[in-house]
């Protein structure tokens, strides 16, 4: 029963990643694509967590933290590029 629940949740998470992929390809504007990428990152983190529960191991927990950090920084970088056209400024205010 437990394994079936884990497998079903993995399938649903994969489906939601596919929906996010659709939004990345079709997405009318760039902010849509960035939000979809962030959602895919969150779904990947959830998939790793479900896998970690399924295999009854704590070896994947570092990966969850690492993917959270990388997804956050990537989203911030994309947002800043969309807003200002430059990612890392030399000097603020110009």
């Amino acid at each position: 029963m437990f394994a079936i629940a884990m497998a079903v949740s993995l399938v649903f998470l994969s489906v939601s990643i596919l929906v996010g992929l659709y939004r990345i390809i079709i997405g009318p504007s760039m902010p849509d694509r960035v939000i979809a990428l962030d959602a895919i990152g969150i779904n990947l983190i959830a998939m790793v967590a479900v896998l970690s529960v399924t295999f009854r191991t704590s070896a994947y927990l570092e990966i969850i933290l690492l993917m959270g950090i990388i997804a956050f920084i990537g989203t911030v970088a994309f947002s800043k590029y969309i807003e200002r056209g430059i990612i890392i400024e030399s000097r603020r205010g110009d």
């Binding site: 690492l66 920084i73 911030v76 890392i88 400024e89 030399s90 603020r92």
Partner: peptide, 17 residues
């Protein structure tokens, strides 16, 4: 990971700061 923390600082502030 250390350099990703530094990159986050560069993103929020600027190179000069």
């Amino acid at each position: 990971v250390i350099s990703s923390a530094l990159i986050l600082m560069l993103l929020a502030f600027d190179i000069e700061t």
